[in-house]
C-alpha cells in the first residue's frame, strides 16, 4: 500500500508541477518584454511596434480588443495586473480607471499640446481623434448628404446608419457625447435627440467601430459615424466614401496611452511611451491620417486644421465621471427599457 501512496503522491505532484511550471514559465524573463493592450488597427501600429522591438530589443506582447473590453480587463485584473500599457480609445476611458494608472513624466512633456495632457500625468495623448460623419456618394445624392448630427434623424437613413455600440467601442462613445452636447446638452433636449437617433438606428448597432466607415463604403449602409483616421484612410484609398465634419461641431478628443499601475514591466512601458511621443514617431502620424500632438510638427495640408473641429471642449474628468450614467442611459434607449 505504501507504494500506492507514493505513486498517488508522485502523480499529484507531477500534475501540479505541470501547472505551476507553466505558470512560472510566464513569470520568467520579464525584463525584456512588455504587454500592450491596444484597440488601434494593426496596419499603422504594427510597423511602429516592430520598430520599437528592433530598436530596444523589448518583446511586445499584444492583446488587441475594443477599448471597452480592455478597460473591463484592466478593472477585472486590478489585484493582479497582467498588462503594462493601454493604448487607444478616448481619454474618458482612461478617466474611468484613473486610479489604476501609473503617473509618468515622459521625455517629451514640453513638446506636446496642453489639451492632450492629463494634469496628473496618468495618461498621455498620442493623437487627436475627432469623430466624423461619412456617407456613400453613390447611394446618397449631394442634396441628401448629411451636413451634421441633426441630419442623421432624416428618415431616408432609417436603419441604414452604421454606428458601433458605445458600450464596447471607445470611438462610438465619443460620438455619443459629442452628439449629446452639440445637439442640446445633457438635458431633456439632448436626450430627446439621442432617443430619436436611436429610433432612426432602428435600435441596431454594428459589431465594431471599423464598420462605421467600411459599412457605408461597401454600400451596405448609407451613412456612418466614424473616427477620422479610418474614414480618411478609406476615402483616400479610393473607396466610395465622403467625409463630413459635422456643422454642429466635432471635438478634439485626445487618444491616449497610459501605463497600468503595478504592471510587471513598468520600466519597459515607460520606454514605449517615450517612443510613441518622440518626434520620430509623431512625424509619421500624418502619413497614416492621424493628428500628431507635438507642437513642433505641422499637420499635413489635407487635414482640416484643429481649430475648425468645433468648440465643444472634451472635458475628460467630467465625461469620465459621468460615463457610467451616460452609457446606462444609452443602453436603456437601445434595450427599450
Amino acid at each position: 500500500m505504501k507504494k500506492v501512496l507514493v505513486f498517488v503522491t508522485i502523480l499529484t505532484l507531477v500534475a501540479s508541477f505541470g501547472l505551476f511550471a507553466a505558470a512560472q514559465a510566464e513569470a520568467k524573463s520579464q525584463s525584456n518584454e512588455v504587454t500592450l493592450y491596444y484597440s488601434h488597427s494593426a496596419d499603422w501600429t504594427d510597423p511602429l511596434i516592430k520598430e520599437f522591438q528592433d530598436r530596444t530589443g523589448i518583446k511586445v506582447n499584444l492583446v488587441g480588443a475594443p477599448t471597452g473590453e480592455l478597460v473591463a480587463r484592466i478593472r477585472a485584473e486590478k489585484d493582479n495586473p497582467l498588462g503594462d500599457l493601454l493604448w487607444g480609445g478616448g481619454s474618458d476611458s482612461y478617466q474611468v480607471i484613473i486610479d489604476l494608472l501609473e503617473p509618468y513624466e515622459h521625455a517629451h512633456m514640453n513638446q506636446v499640446l496642453a489639451e492632450t495632457r492629463d494634469p496628473g500625468n496618468r495618461w498621455h495623448g498620442t493623437s487627436i481623434d475627432p469623430m466624423v460623419i461619412v456617407y456613400n456618394p453613390k447611394l446618397v445624392s449631394e442634396k441628401d448628404a448629411p451636413k451634421g448630427w441633426g441630419d442623421l434623424l432624416n428618415p431616408i437613413f432609417k436603419g441604414r446608419i452604421a454606428h458601433a455600440d458605445p458600450v464596447r467601442s471607445g470611438s462610438a462613445f465619443m460620438a455619443l457625447v459629442i452628439q449629446l452636447f452639440t445637439m442640446g446638452g445633457d438635458n431633456e433636449k439632448g436626450w430627446k435627440y439621442m432617443s430619436d437617433f436611436v429610433d432612426n438606428l432602428e435600435r441596431k448597432v454594428v459589431g465594431s467601430s471599423t464598420l462605421g466607415f467600411k459599412g457605408p463604403a461597401d454600400g451596405e449602409y448609407l451613412v456612418g459615424i466614424a473616427y477620422e483616421e479610418g474614414a480618411l484612410r478609406y476615402a483616400h484609398s479610393g473607396a466610395n466614401l465622403k467625409v463630413v465634419y459635422p456643422v454642429e461641431g466635432s471635438s478634439k478628443v485626445p487618444s491616449p496611452i497610459a501605463i497600468i499601475k503595478n504592471g510587471k514591466n513598468t520600466e519597459n512601458a515607460k520606454k514605449f511611451v517615450d517612443f510613441i511621443l518622440s518626434a520620430d514617431v509623431q512625424s509619421k502620424l500624418g502619413d497614416v491620417h492621424r493628428r500628431a500632438v507635438r507642437t513642433d510638427i505641422q499637420l499635413p495640408a489635407y487635414m482640416t486644421p484643429n481649430e475648425k473641429l468645433g468648440d465643444f471642449y472634451w472635458d475628460t474628468v467630467w465625461i469620465g465621471e459621468n460615463k457610467d450614467r451616460l452609457l446606462n442611459k444609452w443602453k436603456d434607449l437601445i434595450i427599450g427599457k
Binding site: E33, Y37, A42, D43, G64, A65, E77, L82, G83
Partner: peptide, 20 residues
C-alpha cells in the same frame, strides 16, 4: 487569455478584427 498566454486562435481572431 492574457498578453502572455495568447494562443494561435486568439491571434487569428485579433488579426481579423484589426484588418491583419
Amino acid at each position: 487569455y492574457s498578453g502572455r498566454t495568447g494562443t494561435i486562435s486568439v491571434a487569428i481572431y485579433t488579426e481579423i478584427i484589426k484588418d491583419g
